[in-house]
Design a protein around this nucleic acid. Structure first.
Length: 939
RNA sequence: GCCCACUUAGCUCAGUGGUAGAGCAUCCGCUUCACACGCGGGAGGUCGCAAGUUCAAAUCUUGCAGUGGGCACCA
């Protein structure tokens, strides 16, 4: 079989996903093992209006890696997908569309027609994000796809609302809220973003005191609110104002008189020490107003224009026009003391960036204290959920809960879950899960439903269980039993409060258990200059462009390979290097397939001990007395059998790569267990590229490509192809498309390679058993021996490069070494000759080479020399050796210093001291040899 | 104001109480029959600054500086 010369992701990406989805591989039902342990993840539902951004791609990759990994391990796996109705965003988007297409506002067409339009919009465009999720290769179960406004999820919302209301935790009240004049809705504190405005002003207004020629100066950043003032407050301890307390102010621009009151809140040192009090337009003033029973005058409309309470001169003006006019008038009256430059921090609507107006308004709230305590208890007693990284998220999460305020849940929108509260003609409220029940409660059918909808996060808060079938009426479902609590939630830190904490609270309250065990908080993808990506800056990275350019798998590797939890700057070069890696995998496989005649994927080629155990069984235990832990055990089984059976005839390189493979597999599993995705990526990258491609393939190349047909060659071919097969499995969770594409091409891959839970499924790598790694196959001896070979070849290459020997010129290699090393080098003679581009290898106890030789020192006291008759530049060689000597000396100095420190020798662990002594002995030996070599050069 | 994180090679980032790592970039050499999206070989860091703990600190502690983030805010 011959593959294209380079991996082309497009085709693999378009074919495999369709098949996986069509064959039902993503659904948990594919798992045939009735006792399989469950593993579940729910996706943080992206906005239905949204399209994929790079942050999604990161988050989704991590979830899919975990899911695919667990699925391959035989877990009954559910990766639940769904989208969020995203109240405000969606409503704004459709409103914009309506204006553009029909020049109408939602009010023009009415609530019913408008929501119909939104549904139509949702049905038409809502699939954008889900199609992009398919493009990413996510192994989500589409048969369980959910939408926050699905019937069952909506029922859940209403039931939760009713129950919290009945228990007294949801209430309707009049409070100062965050009002967005542009979206014309209230927002929760979490949807408000503070921004510093450097060119703000602080206005000093003089208020005349009644029956006096005195004036009190108040400072304010929002002078227009003075039209709603109902008091001036000072601190009772403030000498300056003591006599004014209880007196009356004639409030300019209005016909009102307001009192001067004393309140602790006022800090005498700040401003003028006197504060104008506007209870209807400032949260602190509201508090003061409550304490002093002040009138609350609302002076603005929903769009932040002034209303009639502001007076005829101001009614209809925008708040900023009103501000100017108030100042003008104060100036005219001679009551404007001064205007200072002042840095103000203003709340903005997170979505539309409009300055928030604090406004007195009647809204629905949830008092979270009970659920908050449940969540805090869970953290205290079970340390759940476990955040990863734990620092700083656990602390931030806990601190936020501890200071939790009531949650404003009503929104003045039409798109969302309409609040299940009805009012009779007298204005009495009846909260019920539907109109019929409300009628029953009210005893009349003359009811109107509350016009507002719930905060989008109210339904999201139920996501972990509402998606599994719980809706308050149906409270036990098979899915809930099987998949709840979910295992892990992967999300960004910006929604720890908005979503994570609220899911914990509602889940504890309504299901009686946590929604998930672990929370992985991933980092933020920044642009290449380390700046946050934003639409306004236009510095965003479109993942779809990256997919097109480099392939989905390379993108996934890049994302998973970034340090878990840390922010990182996006670099196309990084994706490029993983694109190259994908191509490397492609070509390594291509090479093996070009030489795959007679080969088959067969794991016993990689597990000689397992095979040998079988031999023992075949031969009968009584014939041989062996210890399976014995390193030389294979040889003792039956030397002749081993010789005849190529499966047993493993070279150092074979045992080495098998050892490396198993170490890697063990480490990858461990890394994933602790959510160290980048660690797993590094391990796989280096195993495959450095160990497997750079060394193993090169070492066995001649054997594999031999034209002579024999069982030994075929065994080598099977071995290398089996290593590829195992590597592809390890890589699959990260690079699903490439690995499936190649796996399908390997000889002899079939459903037999599946995890036992998927035996009936059609063959696919995504159901293959994930390699655990076998500690018994780790062969430290082979690794040490291989290290010696690698070191030797490296030294030879180094000499050849530094001495400018042409790659076509072959030279002899002379080696002096002890018996152990001699044996290793002899066993690998062919490979050393090939990779060292050598004509001959002379191995002995001592070196016997001409003066015109380049020398090298190896670990373990071995030396090597390359005779370079006529080629050697003595000056250059001397310099090269001098360089090496210098390095050794530097290291030696450190060691001498350390080892002559009595404290170190006495207090450091003996093993450490021994290591250093050995290293020093090694250096001594090498130094002597080097010196001799240099001397020899000069003779 | 309070809290937190980060500061390691030119760039982007790993990393562990015990001789500093990767990718990219850079330099040298290779059309070596899987791959130039490649191969081989180099160069490059007193691990932000200062002090402390320790036999030993890039790693732990404290302080400082810079950068970024969160929370709370005074009219």
């Amino acid at each position: 079989m011959e593959l294209e010369k380079a991996y082309n992701p497009t085709e693999a990406e378009s074919t495999h996903y369709k098949r996986w989805e069509a064959k039902g591989f993503f659904a948990p039902e594919i798992n045939e093992n009735p006792n399989a342990e469950a593993f579940s993840i729910v996706i943080p539902p992206p906005n239905v209006t949204g399209s994929l951004h790079i942050g999604h791609a990161l988050q989704h990759t991590l979830m899919d890696v975990l899911t695919r990994w667990k699925r391959m391990q035989g877990f009954k796996t559910l990766f639940l997908v769904g989208v969020d109705h995203a109240g405000i965003s969606t409503q704004l988007m459709v409103t914009r569309q309506l204006k553009k297409d029909e020049h109408k506002t939602p009010q023009d067409i009415g609530r019913e027609a408008f929501t119909e339009k939104v549904w139509a919009w949702k049905n038409k465009y809502g699939g954008t994000i889900t199609n992009q999720i398919r493009r990413e290769g996510l192994s989500v179960d589409w048969s369980r796809e959910r939408f926050t406004m699905d019937e069952s999820l909506s029922i859940a919302v209403r039931n939760v609302f009713v129950r919290l209301y009945e228990e007294g935790w949801i209430y309707r009240g009049t409070r100062i809220v965050n009002w967005c004049p542009r979206d014309k809705t209230v927002l929760s504190d979490l949807e408000v973003k503070e921004e510093t405005k450097k060119d703000g002003k602080l206005y000093y207004l003089q208020y005349p005191v009644k029956d006096s020629d005195k004036k009190i100066t108040v400072a304010t950043t929002r002078p227009e609110t003075m039209l709603g003032d109902t008091a001036v407050a000072v601190n009772a301890g403030d000498e300056r104002y003591r006599d004014f307390i209880g007196k009356t102010i004639e409030l300019p621009l209005t016909n009102r008189e307001i009192k001067i009151i004393a309140d602790e809140y006022v800090e005498s040192e700040f401003g003028t020490g006197a504060v104008k009090i506007t209870p209807a337009h400032d949260p602190n003033d509201y508090e003061i107003g409550e304490r002093h029973n002040l009138e609350k005058i609302v002076i603005m409309n929903a769009d932040a224009t002034m209303n009639q309470n502001a007076g005829a001169d101001f009614e209809g003006l925008d708040r900023y026009e009103a501000r100017e006019k108030v100042i003008e008038k104060f100036e005219e009256l001679g009551l404007l003391e001064k205007i200072d430059d002042y840095e103000v921090v203003l709340p903005h609507c997170e979505r539309c960036k409009t300055v928030i107006e604090p406004l007195l308004s009647e809204q629905w709230f949830v008092n979270m204290s009970e659920m908050r305590d449940m969540a805090l208890d869970l953290m205290r007693k079970e340390n759940a959920p476990h955040f990863s990284p734990q620092v700083p998220h656990e602390k931030v999460y806990t601190a936020w809960l501890e200071n939790l305020k009531d949650w404003t849940i009503s929104r003045q929108l039409w798109w969302g879950h309409q609040i299940p509260a009805w009012y009779d003609e007298a204005g009495n409220v009846y909260v019920a899960k539907n109109k019929e029940e409300a009628i029953a409660k009210a005893g009349t059918d003359k009811l109107t439903q509350d016009q507002d909808v719930l905060d989008t996060w109210f339904s999201s808060a139920l996501w972990s269980f509402s998606t599994l079938g719980w809706n308050g009426e149906t409270t036990e479902t098979e899915d809930l039993k099987t998949f709840h609590p979910t295992n892990v939630l992967v999300t960004g830190r910006d929604i720890i409060f908005l979503w994570v904490s609220r899911m914990v609270m509602t889940s504890l309250k309504f299901i009686g258990e946590k929604p998930f065990s672990d929370v992985i908080i991933h980092g933020t993808v920044l642009d290449k200059n380390g700046q946050r990506m934003s639409k306004t800056k236009g510095n965003g990275i479109d993942p779809l462009d990256v997919f097109d350019k480099y392939g989905v798998d390379a993108t996934r590797m890049t994302l998973a390979g970034s340090s878990t939890g840390a922010d990182f700057a996006w670099r196309d070069e990084k994706v490029e290097s993983f694109r190259n890696f994908a191509n490397k995998i492609w070509n390594a496989t291509r090479f093996c397939l070009l030489n795959s005649e007679g080969a088959q994927v067969d794991y016993t080629f990689l597990n000689p001990k397992e095979e040998a155990r079988e031999i023992v069984r075949l031969l009968g235990d009584e014939l041989i007395d062996i210890d399976e832990e014995d390193e030389e055990f294979l040889d003792k089984v039956d030397p002749q059998f081993a010789k005849d059976n190529p499966k047993e005839n493993l070279s150092i390189a074979d045992r080495w790569i098998i050892s490396r493979l198993n170490k890697t597999a063990l480490a990858v599993n461990k890394a994933l267990e602790t959510y160290q995705f980048h660690e797993a990526v590094q391990l796989l990258y280096h195993f495959f590229w450095d160990d497997f491609c750079d060394w193993y393939i090169e070492l066995v190349k001649d054997e594999i490509t031999s034209v002579e047909v024999n069982t030994r060659r075929d065994a080598a071919r099977s071995r290398i192809i089996t290593i590829i097969e195992q590597s592809l499995r390890l890589l699959h969770p990260f690079m699903p498309f490439l690995t499936e594409e190649l796996w399908q091409k390997l000889p002899n891959t079939s459903a037999d390679l599946h995890n036992a839970a998927y035996k009936s499924a059609e063959q696919t790598i995504m159901l293959a058993d994930f390699p655990k790694g076998d500690a018994n196959l780790i062969d430290e001896k082979a690794e040490t021996e291989m290290q010696a070979v690698i070191e030797l070849i490296g030294k030879v290459r180094n000499i050849r490069a530094e001495m400018n020997i042409k790659s076509g010129d072959k030279s002899a290699i002379h080696i002096a070494a002890n018996r152990d090393l001699q044996k290793i080098f002899t066993e690998n003679e062919a490979q050393i000759l090939k990779l060292g581009r050598a004509s001959e290898l002379k191995i002995g106890e001592t070196l016997d080479v001409p003066k015109a030789s380049a020398r090298g020192i190896l670990t373990g006291g071995a030396e090597l020399a390359i005779p370079l008759e006529g080629l050697i530049d003595f000056e250059k060689e001397h310099e090269r050796l001098e360089n090496q000597l210098e390095k050794l000396n530097t290291e030696n100095e450190k060691l001498v210093k350390q080892l002559s420190n009595q404290n170190f020798v006495e207090k450091a662990p003996p093993e450490k001291v021994k290591d250093l002594r050995e290293r020093m002995a090694e250096i001594d030996m090498q130094t002597i040899t080097l010196a001799e070599n240099m001397k020899a050069l000069k003779q």
